[in-house]
Computed example of a mutant assay.
Amino acid sequence: MPSNSEFSFSVLVGGHAIPEYGRGGQVFVESNFFTPASYKDKEEVVVDGQTEVNEWPVTPYTIEITTKPLTPLARYTVSVDGFVVTKIYLTGGESRVVKGFRDKERGGLAEFVFSLPRYPKNKDDGGKQSPEDVGTIRVTSNDTWEEWLHRPRPVTRGRKGTAFVPATKKDSRMVTGGQYTMVTTRMGRNIPTTGRRTSSSSSSSSSSSSSSSLSNSMWVTGVRRGMLEVKCRMGDAVRAMGFQIRPYPIVLAANNISAGMVYSHS
């Protein structure tokens, strides 16, 4: 997993961290569309005035951030394909799983899913995302402290709709130069949540109760402490870099079924 002196993070499929491949200071993961957790997604799109029905396999994933025992309190910003998903506060020895995008239309969360890039809706659609963002999961940490003396600030209620726009094939060509198939992230199935407040993350450590109450305080974000990222690639791109694809176990937590070893078919 990408790691520095204060924290690390992993990409999980079916509750298990998937294999990583390192080269030139970068970390890559294979986006496998043929796992026990994968499913078919369908979408109707209007392309040049005509309706097309597209269906393709997708694989849901989550992001787990873990801080090292002596790490000071920091704010962690999670970004997917350049879009900021959530900002959470963690101190030393804590772990948090980020499950998906906030979904205002359906309520709850929308899964992160590995997917092929979407079709452009017209000739001007696409090419808007930075090449370093497409197919990238990024976690940035910043100093943070409580602002004890501050002037009252107006409080805005409610949330805007999710602004995430999946990358197009044109965006992916900016990264690949047409040499291999690109993988991006989309919003998948809805994950219902209970309670008054919808959260894009969930605690996986008993010690994280201290950080869960920080959202009710006034906090200041300071200088960046560190940044880690993972590049998501399909199997052919991973092989082209000279790596041998490694199998990995997936356990479907919802059904409590061990799927054994899963091999790449991409």
Rank of each mutant, 00 (worst) to 15 (best):
S258Y: 12
V230F: 00
W219L: 07
V47N: 07
S201I: 07
M234F: 10
H16T: 03
T162D: 10
T140W: 00
K160I: 09
I65L: 05
A74T: 00
V155S: 10
V155C: 13
E52D: 10
F114M: 03
N32W: 02
V183L: 14
P247C: 05
F33Q: 04
A74C: 03
R138D: 03
D143H: 08
V251Y: 08
V175A: 06
P57V: 01
G260Y: 14
V53R: 12
K170W: 11
L149Y: 15
G135C: 07
V134M: 08
D236I: 03
K121Q: 06
F101N: 02
L90F: 03
I88C: 00
G14R: 00
G92I: 03
T35D: 06
Y76W: 11
D236E: 15
E44Q: 14
E105M: 15
R157K: 14
S5M: 05
R102D: 06
S199M: 11
V80I: 13
P57Y: 13
T168I: 05
S199R: 15
P154M: 02
V13L: 01
P154V: 09
K121H: 14
V84L: 09
A167F: 11
T136R: 04
V113Q: 04
D81S: 05
I245L: 15
R196F: 13
P36C: 02
E20Y: 10
D124S: 12
R102N: 14
G161Q: 07
S208I: 03
V84E: 08
E111Y: 02
A254V: 09
V230A: 01
T91Q: 05
Y39A: 09
G82L: 11
E111H: 13
G222T: 01
R151S: 08
Y39W: 14
K68W: 11
N122G: 09
E64M: 01
K42F: 12
E64H: 10
T51H: 14
G126F: 07
P192S: 07
K169V: 09
G22N: 15
G195S: 07
Y89W: 14
S202G: 12
P152V: 01
R153F: 13
M241P: 12
